[in-house]
Design a protein around this nucleic acid. Structure first.
Lengths: 361, 361
DNA sequence: GCCCCTAAAGGAAACGTTTCCATGCCGGCG
DNA sequence: CGCCGGCATGGAAACGTTTCCTTTAGGGGC
């Protein structure tokens, strides 16, 4: 029923070894012979059995992708980048999401054991010392936006620190002296980096830190709403707020509006990630955009390189530069006729919206 | 270096056959023997080689997932549903996205050939007669939100038709007689279903169809902006607009605001999908929510059933019921103090926002 | 003319499982 | 006491490749 390499061989009048060499270009085969073999392959609709192949080759052409429970748009853009690069390189993706903690991660890794040629892990909530022992040895690994100090693998990240710093510096440039921050969840790598950037910016601008201006959040809109209320209650009031992601910024924006506080008139506001809906809040939201899909693509490229040249194990960390996207919520941008954000005149997509002002970090 | 079942067998003092039986519970093994084997497994850190296993078993515990190039949130919620169910059933996901057309689909399917136990395909742009020949035979398949008439596989979908119809009936209930629609891309299954629902609602309400009120869109925000402008130019003007997804509704909303048209005062507006940012537009957007993650979970369940009981091939189609989420943009909902949408008092998440009014279709 | 070297091709082992069949053992029944 | 049947186990084939090691043929250099 199933057609094997042996069928192809006998139809082409050669041995299986020759068929294998012809198909993989792994040895000398006469041109005429190759043609006969290819005809037989077509006629029989032969497909090599990948299980048999990996059994002997010890290669699966499979890349594992382990992600935390992600907010929508980031997730899909990352996958897109990974997927596209993987297709180019002839790899397939074994995806598993919803792994926020070490336990889930361990289970998922256990299940994938031995099926992979490489692994991409995004685990911003797991510390390096916990993560290390979980990761399989002898497997190329790329960590994404995760703590990786001293781990035996590559680490790629969006430059959360630099983006946050630049954004807060920008707010200070508007003249704000009291700038509040809505933090991400505790023990989250990205959240900590953004807080670090906030501190660095305050220091650079010669502003005092004030613990009451640093409130807890959880990367959700409702968390942002609560945090926004909390910041509004601080006296003297901050005049600007940096929410460490867009969802919280939107929640905070709702809190402002409910409290009758005008944005950006009474209070400047900025987010992080530049999720697409930042354009549709009123006022449109200033944010920081990272090259998310490129992050994924690079991770795949690293793995592909490691697979094809094993032993060449130079583990490096890299931060991908981000871009500030200035819109009205921080006090930038023209007032505009309608206050409808920055979609004007039916501009094509979010990447070509004319009224965004970008600045690379 | 790598530890095989043979190592386990010799350490436990039994044959490989017995080890296999013990590990798979596929035959009688004395309790004492089993314990010795399990100890050996632990001591040697033995992991069965999945390639060898699939080679002889002809099972891979891999489910293919082919998706089109999807807008953010839908995508991630679907994956979440699929992934969770797959983990429960002991399956892994082979993911491949960005397949809008038949060609891409064919390439992707070709690459996965033979590696899968089952397949989930979402291809709303591909017609059934085109899709059919591409799909591998002898493999359990579930189609998602796709045209499937006469195909040899299961088909699951969000009830786009019913949701659209109910929504437009609701708009008519507000007293609107001229209701415009912003269509999705041509030849898109969901788009066609929603248009069909729109027509059904008009008929049910005894309203005339008017071709000028049916404008083209492409499921993007900027497309919605253009379509919105187009509808605003129609005389007599429509008093309500049904955008067939939320992104276009947001674009249309921008167009209204830019034109000085008040929503919902001068023009009612509603979308579809209930993407999370619908809560943050002003006014908050009325929409239709589908059980997206359940859609994915059901698909997996179907496949799992088909795998474990082959031959039992009853192919069925099913539409999952949707829920209207009424907010201010259609004229429903309290005016509210601030116009900040429906996030009030820091309600937990989008699923428990108190001021949403839901109605199951 | 002979030998050696190389290109082309074949035979067979190996990869690590599962599973079919055979075997030994024991208890119970005739 | 002999036989039968079921339980626990072992031996070995099979899955479909890749690859190592031969074999064969032909061509060029001496």
């Amino acid at each position: 029923m199933t057609v094997t390499i042996r069928d192809v061989a006998s139809r082409a009048g050669v041995s299986v070894a020759t068929v294998s060499r012809a198909l993989n270009r792994s040895g000398p085969v006469r041109e005429a012979t190759r043609r006969r073999i290819e005809e037989a392959v077509k006629a029989l609709r032969y497909r090599p059995n990948s299980a048999a192949r990996s059994l002997i080759t010890r290669r699966t052409r499979l890349l594992g992708v382990l992600l935390p429970d992600l907010h929508g748009e980031f997730f899909s853009e990352l996958i897109r980048g990974i997927d596209h690069a993987a297709q180019m390189g002839g790899y397939h993706l074994l995806l598993s999401s919803s792994h926020d903690n070490a336990n889930d991660l361990e289970v998922a890794l256990e299940g994938m054991h031995g099926r992979l040629d490489g692994l991409i892990v995004m685990a911003p909530k797991v510390e390096a010392r916990v993560l290390g022992p979980l990761l399989p040895a002898n497997l190329p690994i790329v960590l994404l936006n995760s703590a990786a100090s001293g781990l035996e693998c590559d680490a790629l990240r969006i430059d959360s620190f630099g983006g946050a710093r630049e954004l807060v510096v920008h707010l200070a440039g508007h003249g704000h002296r009291r700038i509040g921050i809505i933090n991400g969840p505790p023990r989250n790598f990205d959240a900590e980096e953004r807080l670090r950037g906030y501190h660095a910016a305050l220091d650079a601008a010669g502003l005092q830190r004030d613990e009451r201006l640093e409130v807890a959040g959880d990367f959700t809109a409702s968390g942002g709403y609560l945090a926004g209320q909390q910041l509004l209650a601080v006296r003297p009031r901050p005049t600007a707020i940096f929410a460490t992601n867009d969802a919280m910024a939107m929640g905070a924006l709702s809190a402002m509006l409910d409290a009758g506080v005008a944005v950006p008139g009474d209070m400047a506001l900025a987010g992080f990630d530049d999720v697409s809906s930042t354009q549709y809040t009123i006022p449109a939201l200033t944010s920081v955009r990272g090259p998310i899909s490129e992050l994924g693509a690079r991770a795949v490229a690293r793995l592909a390189a490691a697979v094809s040249a094993p032993g060449t194990t130079v583990h490096l960390e890299e931060s991908l530069p981000v871009t500030m996207v200035l819109r009205r919520s921080c006090g930038c941008g023209e007032a505009g006729g309608s206050g409808s954000g920055d979609v004007q005149g039916g501009a094509a997509g979010r990447d070509s919206v004319p009224s965004d002002q970008e600045r690379t970090a």
